[in-house]
Write a protein that binds this DNA or RNA. Sequence first.
DNA 1: TATTGTTATACTCTATAACTATA
DNA 2: TATAGTTATAGAGTATAACAATA
Lengths: 157, 157
Amino acid sequence: MDRTGTPAQTRAQTGREPVDLSAGLRLAVMRLARRLRQRADVGTTPSMLSALSTVERRGPITLGDLAAAERITPATLSVIVGRLEQEGLVVREPDPSDGRVARIRLSPVGRRLIERNRRRKTAYLARRIERLDADDREAVRRALPVLERLIDDEDGS
Amino acid sequence: MDRTGTPAQTRAQTGREPVDLSAGLRLAVMRLARRLRQRADVGTTPSMLSALSTVERRGPITLGDLAAAERITPATLSVIVGRLEQEGLVVREPDPSDGRVARIRLSPVGRRLIERNRRRKTAYLARRIERLDADDREAVRRALPVLERLIDDEDGS
DNA sequence: TATTGTTATACTCTATAACTATA
DNA sequence: TATAGTTATAGAGTATAACAATA
């Protein structure tokens, strides 16, 4: 927790600063993710929920597109969707015009699970965020869209 | 790879309550973590690097304390430290006064690897952060200590 | 031949339970 | 008996490679 040497003064040197910032962000993100993973609900795993939530947002979607959205390989996703289907959370609808393709769609059960989880699953973080003072909370709120952009950002390298 | 349909609604701008905020943060963190994990250096895994970095910060440290700091079980950590030791990145020093305990300490090779990685490993994020405008970068900078506090915060439930 | 998806295999990360060695 | 650490086992999450079905 060495937060003593705040690099606030070196703001002018844009060369060095992003590296420090990203080093810190990287560790924080990895550790927060680990903690969140540990609080996964029994029965549904974090990957499943992430995929489920994307299916909700993107409507009926092919496996390939869903894999691209989730940034995992179709092979990996195939396994995950298989589990979701087995749990009755999604259905695969064959495409009439292209026999190779199936569209994945949320089932009513899946939708209910998402809504239930949106309150429960989030409780760990929500409780902590509630305890933050207004400034800190505002800082998180402002950073969130930026984080989302960091993820979505195209281009591999 | 149809990624044309960008989910603009992802902007949970409307949600100002802690629950909404944390739901968004949760997804963002999990996905960013997944992306970062994919960029792990060959040879050293993310867990190894995380543990290594904690050993650097906390000096010679017992396995139990390191496990607590990393929030994983001693059993899990034992495996990870075993790999770190095998790679010559840390050494276990037996405690003279208590034969059960060994202190884990960074080797020179480990220290060099950390420093090298601090630039390389982070490059992916750093490049993206460089492209942000000043406001966005400031938002991340301000949020980072808050995220760290969310992680460190004690008390399980 | 190219595309979409699945299956086989392998490795990391993690946990719990059972164990060993020391106190 | 209690504590520090290790080993065994198992399941999730991921990738690559090989495959099947369809276009």
